[in-house]
Amino acid sequence: MRVFPVYAPKLIVKHARIFLTGVIWVKDLGRLEFEKGRFLLPRKSLPKVKQAILELNELIEAQN
């Protein structure tokens, strides 16, 4: 598990694309899981977490 002390979308996306499957922890967002290079949306999450995951997945799609 990698810990990101700040929310840096480009760096987080780079990590997810390299490792494809895993878990990261982002300060103020908490634990985020990714599989096959995409972030998974938890069943229950705060609106800011949901927005961050959608933003990260959009960045991943834009890079493909």
Rank of each mutant, 00 (worst) to 15 (best):
I53Q: 02
K36I: 05
Q63C: 06
G30C: 02
I60Y: 07
L20I: 13
R2A: 15
W25F: 09
F19N: 15
I60S: 05
V23R: 13
S45N: 13
P9M: 04
E35R: 11
H15G: 01
P9C: 03
G30V: 01
K50A: 05
V3I: 04
R31T: 07
E35G: 06
R43T: 10
L54V: 09
L32T: 01
K44E: 07
T21W: 09
A62R: 11
L40W: 04
K14Q: 13
A62C: 09
Q51S: 11
V3S: 05
A62S: 12
D28L: 06
P42H: 07
N57P: 00
I12W: 00
L11V: 08
V23Y: 10
L46C: 08
Y7W: 14
V13M: 06
R31V: 10
V26H: 01
F19V: 15
Y7C: 03
Q63E: 14
A52G: 03
K14D: 14
F34A: 01
F34Q: 00
L59K: 05
K10V: 12
I12E: 00
I24F: 05
P5H: 15
I53T: 05
Q51I: 10
A62P: 06
R31N: 05
I53P: 00
L40P: 05
L59Y: 06
G30S: 02
F39R: 00
S45A: 11
W25Q: 06
G22W: 01
R2P: 15
K36A: 13
E35F: 09
K10W: 09
R31L: 07
G30N: 02
Q63Y: 10
K44Y: 10
A62M: 13
A8T: 12
V6P: 02
A62W: 10
V13Y: 03
E33R: 15
A8R: 08
Y7F: 08
K50Y: 08
K10N: 13
L29Q: 01
P5I: 10
R38L: 12
K27C: 13
I18D: 15
V23G: 04
V3Y: 15
R31I: 12
V3G: 05
N57E: 03
S45K: 08
V3C: 12
P5T: 08
L46N: 14
L41M: 13
V49S: 04
V6M: 09
K36W: 10
P47M: 11
M1V: 15
L46G: 13
I12H: 02
R17S: 13
N57G: 02
E58L: 11
E58A: 12
E61H: 10
L20Y: 10
A62K: 10
Q63T: 13
G22F: 01
I18W: 10
K27P: 14
K48N: 07
V6L: 07
E61M: 09
V23P: 02
N57D: 03
V49F: 06
G37C: 08
L54C: 08
N57V: 02
G22K: 02
R2F: 15
N57F: 01
A8G: 03
G22D: 02
R2T: 14
R43H: 09
V49M: 12
K44A: 07
G37V: 06
L29M: 10
I24H: 00
E55K: 09
W25I: 07
R2V: 15
K14C: 08
L29P: 00
K50Q: 06
V49Q: 07
P42N: 11
P42D: 07
L11S: 12
I53D: 00
L46M: 12
H15M: 04
P47N: 11
F4Q: 01
L59A: 05
K14M: 10
E58K: 12
V13K: 02
Y7P: 01
K36G: 12
V3K: 11
V23A: 05
L56A: 00
L11H: 08
K14S: 13
E58D: 09
D28S: 14
A62I: 14
I60K: 03
K44L: 08
K14H: 12
P47V: 12
